[in-house]
Amino acid sequence: MGAITLTKLYDSEQLKHDIYKLSEHYDFIKVHTIGYSVLGEPLLELKIGEGDKRVHWNGAFHANEWITTPLLLKVVEEYAEGIIHGRQLEKELFSSTRLSVVPMVNPDGVNLFMHGSEIAKAYKDLVNKANHNHVNFTSWKANIRGVDLNNQFPAHWEVEKQRKPQDPNFRDYPGEKPLSEPESKAIYDLTQKSSFHRVLAFHSQGEVIYWGYQNKEPSQAKSIVGAFQAVSGYEPVHTIDSYAGYKDWFIQDYKREGYTVEVGKGINPLPWSTFNDHLKKVKPICFKSMEM
């Protein structure tokens, strides 16, 4: 029986419940609050391992891509089980790697997706307008202020500002300035403080892995993403006409490996019934990111 609860209503309360169950069950999983969302939800980071290699995973930058949150937590749980049972690979990874995981970057947006505009409090009118007065929020990607958190980073942000929506919207609005939102700023600050060697941002959908940015990525990124492809079947894509994303900024500023992993194929939100199929591909990518 696993410590976490797999449910298609995976909101921030479920996340908090599961994270604290994991940290109680496995005393080597440390939990930190790296900041708070607009509505005051804690942005939680899990840390595992004692090594020198610093690897970071995050999920649910986008509200309707929330399935990435339970996927990452399930991988963490299975990793922890391997450590407890003394499996060789997991023991070696624990010794060599310091893993950081922020499973839900955008808790307000996920809660809006799950529960509707009643949870938006002072932002209820804003979200209804930004959602074009649709009854449900199945297309919503932004945070509660209608800002796309993965369009917020100082990596040619001004390009996105010019060509994307100019007002709060259910997707793509980059905000009034880079890092205007507490959620993107928290991830930015964590990354600066932690000096990660490799970061993986999990989104959906497409079964592709974006791995470059303006040819500033290190030379080994091509072979690493090839290893990810070998274990998952996800197609490497070097670059696209997109800026101001988390992995774009990370590659630009640190000249280290950053990957955007697009889980699954279809239309967001991905059906909950496909969870186990995605787990079979996400878990080996995650393990490989610590191993190599």
Rank of each mutant, 00 (worst) to 15 (best):
I144N: 02
R87K: 15
L15I: 08
N128E: 14
L73N: 01
K8N: 15
A142Y: 04
F61R: 06
E13T: 09
L39R: 03
K8I: 11
I67V: 12
Y36K: 13
Y10R: 10
D148C: 04
K161Y: 15
L93I: 09
E291W: 02
T138E: 14
R54M: 12
A80P: 03
K124T: 14
H238Y: 12
L6M: 11
G266W: 07
G245P: 07
E257G: 01
D167G: 08
V208I: 15
K280P: 03
W57K: 06
S37L: 05
S96W: 08
Q229P: 07
D172K: 13
H62D: 07
L179D: 00
F196D: 00
S219P: 06
K265A: 02
E90M: 11
E81W: 00
K121D: 13
G51M: 00
K141E: 07
N150T: 04
H25Y: 13
H278W: 04
Q214V: 05
E257D: 07
D27T: 15
G35A: 03
A130R: 00
H62S: 03
S180T: 14
G212N: 14
T33F: 07
N131Q: 08
R163N: 15
G82E: 09
V31M: 12
S273F: 02
P269C: 04
G175N: 12
I84S: 13
N268I: 03
H134F: 08
H197F: 05
R171A: 09
I209W: 01
N215F: 06
D52G: 09
D125T: 15
E24R: 15
H62E: 01
V102R: 07
E217H: 05
Y173S: 05
R198Q: 04
E45K: 11
V102M: 03
W249F: 10
P103L: 00
Y20E: 12
K280T: 02
E183C: 06
G49I: 00
V105A: 02
D18S: 01
P154D: 03
S184K: 02
P103G: 01
I34R: 05
W66C: 00
F287R: 12
G49M: 10
P218I: 09
F287P: 06
T68V: 09
N169W: 05
N151K: 13
P174D: 03
L43S: 02
N150P: 09
L149H: 01
L43Q: 08
S204T: 14
H62M: 11
L39G: 09
H115S: 10
F202T: 00
A120L: 06
E92K: 13
A244V: 11
Y79H: 04
V105R: 05
L200F: 11
F196M: 05
V76P: 14
P236C: 10
V199I: 15
